[in-house]
Write a protein that binds this DNA or RNA. Sequence first.
DNA 1: AGAGCCTAAATTGTCAACAATCTATTAAAT
DNA 2: ATTTAATAGATTGTTGACAATTTAGGCTCT
Lengths: 225, 225
Amino acid sequence: MQALFSQDARTIADRLGDALVTAIVKGDIASGSKISEPDLAQAYRVSRGPLREALRRLEGLHLVSRVPHAGARVVTLGLEELVEIYHIREALEGMAARLAAANMREEERRALTQLLDLHEENIEQSQGREYFQREGDFDFHYRIIQASGNQRLIDLLCSELYHLIRMYRYRSARMTARPAVALAEHRQIAAAIAHGDGEFAEMLMRKHISTARRNIERQFRAAGE
Amino acid sequence: MQALFSQDARTIADRLGDALVTAIVKGDIASGSKISEPDLAQAYRVSRGPLREALRRLEGLHLVSRVPHAGARVVTLGLEELVEIYHIREALEGMAARLAAANMREEERRALTQLLDLHEENIEQSQGREYFQREGDFDFHYRIIQASGNQRLIDLLCSELYHLIRMYRYRSARMTARPAVALAEHRQIAAAIAHGDGEFAEMLMRKHISTARRNIERQFRAAGE
DNA sequence: AGAGCCTAAATTGTCAACAATCTATTAAAT
DNA sequence: ATTTAATAGATTGTTGACAATTTAGGCTCT
């Protein structure tokens, strides 16, 4: 019965993979930069074997792109790809909201509202401190997705698609710049879910995400490209 | 400028990955079976290094599940997971059909109809020869997805989600058992796309996939579990 | 007889050296 | 002077051996 809760039930490649994901998402490893296997291996004090396995996983997450015999680069997310992802989010999170309205327990619905109360406080008193700007929105969507009950959908959105979105948010300092508007939309969605109105929740979620997509498009054009 | 079109511009791990995907999908490697790295490596005449990298990719495709220090197993697709995937297909391929109706060129619309003519021939004269039963349906959906123009959506459906569906089709000998019905639905979808009616195409596609899902549920219950 | 522990074999995870490929620099030729 | 080709360096891909962990078998004890 090895260690009760062993310090590494997981393998080096797995932990390294997680570490690299957050490093890329947070920008510690610059987007677009080339990845040198010897350098990275030394930086994380691991061998190239586990590193290559971890990179294979990141490739599957579309966080790095590999060219055989030429090496791996951190992806650069352009407007094009971001818009594509938001269109997919629109379809999938709309579906998640509908399912959440059908499946959420009373306790979860209350917790969802309380989460938004917390967000409101943070918006007021700190004018959007970084963390809540970035991860708070994610928390809200995350809970709804979780409540969908569709495990494959959960994996798809939370473990395979959201990294790129978080990556974008860490790069664009103040993304929406309108946390109050987003909060109001969140409240509407939460209300629809609270009432068990799945159709309406789906509609509101789709509109919410499509609005966010348009903001991104506007922001990109304003930024020159 | 190495070989003009070199026999292996790709790496061993990449080719091996593809080989393993098809082997699993076609059932050459039994679903649920444990994967022995030494055995598999010897069977494919490769070393364990590339094999492990390939397995990492298959893990990302949800074709194998790994347990640290315990090994990898080929996934067994239960009704639960299959239904989840079909719900996701409903949302995503509905969206793909809508986009295809907006984006398809005249030539592609004709080709789509011709493809269905070909399917009709094969259904009549061969009473559903295996290949067309299995891959023909895929071809139809494949073209519509491709025409969506959303590269991320294309990857998601064609490279990350469809393997499991094909795997199911290879296992259940005669799946729908109603190729004629499916063909009729395909014709309706193609017609809607031909007329550029995206909303209707989406609706029909969703209904088509939801019908397929119910057939699978019925079939599973009939099969005992 | 059955449960639990211990030992041993097999398997997975990791590492470091070797081979193959690409990139950059330098030299040569037009 | 610019382009092309060749060479050297660095980097990626691959291999086989080593270490750590798990599983199966047998033994002991209750």
